[in-house]
Simulated scan of single mutants.
Amino acid sequence: MKLGFDAKRAYHNTTGLGNYSRDLLKILAAFYPDNSYVLYNPKPKKVDRLSDYKNLIEKLPDSFLNKKFSSFWRQGAIVNQLKQDKIDLYHGLSGEIPRNIKKEGIPSVVTIHDLIFVRYPELYSFFDRKIHYNKFKYAAQNADKVIAISEQTKNDIVEFLDIDASKIEVIYQGCHSVFKEIATSSEIEKVKSKFNLPEKFILNVGTIEERKNLLSIVKSIKNLDVHLVVVGRKTKYYDRVLEYVKSNQLTNRVHFLEGVDLKELSVLYQSAEIFVYPSIFEGFGIPIIEALYSKTPVITSRGGVFPEAGGSDSYYVDPSNIDEFTNAIDVLLKDETKRNDMIEKGHKFVQKFNDEVIANAIMKLYKTVLNEK
């Protein structure tokens, strides 16, 4: 098969949608090497993490005008290039497909990660909400199949986009293979030394924004004897968190790290006593998966998508209840036996997100779409 992909995020985003795109492309290339995977990139790449795979072929816009107006190319004019390249099926990896792709008879699949802009409109501008909604609605209506990355997202697509549930397939995300590698003691010491970290700490990973709810963790450790390490891109919400840290004399116990590469991040997961993820809402929650693969016990939010990612043996609390968070952290820090039990069961649970499972599910869906044509 010759498969086409929207590769904007794969070549330009270092987190989130970029990671999803790259990880999926890599596992398809590895487990189904006889296919050709054509990656349509609107602009010269900023991120180069796919060059090791010879069957991943990058394609840029094919004319001066398409290069100059690359966003319009990606939304519509790309279809002519797909036809010229004789693409069997096109996969929009981030909630979008080109206009007229259905009219031109090219089978398509789209992945929708979440509809947070509908659930929490206050986090987005009016115009961003309208743009996201129109793109996602069009893609869900016109693609042959929709991939939702969780049951939570599937339910939201049905409710908010009015798409028939039979058109939607839940295929979970995995995570980068680096989180499955066991760090050596020297690697752990090297990372701790580089970032000047204490011997024991709890960890939070994710963009420092209001929805991720970092302030709840900071408040929860105020009266505990524990250090918190935070890895994530800063937004305006960071200023609120920092103000609380400073006003409550927590500067020496809350560590904001920058310049952390993937390998170092994997070492941080393995070094942490607990991973704490108090997000209010997610489409899935990849950091939870990363922690479970790293054999680190997880405390996360009760309800929503989080049990899908964390399984039955993670520790769930009300994300708005500081006392619950404090108690959960305190209990796990004091109970090594419980932590070890959570580690063993969590690592067993997370194997359902292994690369081969995901690759097989994706390829099965592609073949279903093509067989129905």
Rank of each mutant, 00 (worst) to 15 (best):
S108M: 07
R9D: 02
K86W: 10
K348I: 10
F64R: 11
T14N: 15
D330K: 14
K352E: 00
K180M: 14
K45A: 14
T296M: 12
K46I: 04
Q270H: 12
I362E: 05
K192T: 11
N248F: 10
L333A: 03
S21I: 05
E209L: 01
V267E: 00
P121N: 13
I112Y: 03
K338P: 03
K180F: 08
K295F: 08
I57L: 12
P121I: 12
E181C: 02
L268G: 07
N340C: 07
V241H: 04
Y172P: 05
V305R: 01
F5M: 13
A328Y: 02
T326I: 08
P287T: 10
V241F: 04
D23A: 02
P61D: 12
Y40P: 06
S220F: 09
D6S: 15
D162L: 10
D85L: 08
D48E: 14
D85P: 04
K167D: 05
E96I: 11
D34I: 04
A165K: 15
A7E: 12
R9I: 08
D128W: 10
G303E: 09
K83S: 14
N155W: 02
S51C: 06
L365H: 03
T15D: 14
F179N: 04
S166N: 14
L39R: 11
S177C: 06
K86F: 05
Y20Q: 08
V369Y: 00
R9T: 04
Y32E: 10
H176E: 01
V369R: 07
I157F: 07
E324R: 01
T337Q: 06
R233G: 15
N340L: 12
F127G: 01
D341R: 13
P61T: 13
K43P: 00
K67D: 08
F72Y: 14
I106D: 06
I322T: 11
I288K: 00
L250K: 03
D23L: 01
L224A: 11
N100M: 15
A77G: 07
L333T: 11
F5V: 07
S94L: 09
Y269H: 14
L257Q: 11
E122D: 13
T153I: 07
S279M: 04
F195S: 10
S150P: 05
A30W: 01
P98I: 12
S216W: 03
E273N: 13
S301A: 15
Q75P: 05
V267G: 08
V231P: 01
I147N: 04
S216D: 05
D156H: 06
Y32H: 15
F201P: 00
K145T: 08
D341Y: 12
D164M: 06
F117S: 08
E282F: 05
Y53S: 08
K180Y: 05
F31E: 06
G95V: 02
N55A: 12
Y11D: 02
I202G: 06
K103D: 13
V178M: 02
R129P: 06
I208S: 00
N80S: 13
T326R: 11
P297Q: 11
L82P: 08
V170N: 04
N41M: 12
R49P: 04
A309E: 01
E344C: 11
Y316C: 09
G311N: 01
D261I: 12
Y32G: 03
Y244T: 09
I112A: 07
S266Y: 00
G259Y: 07
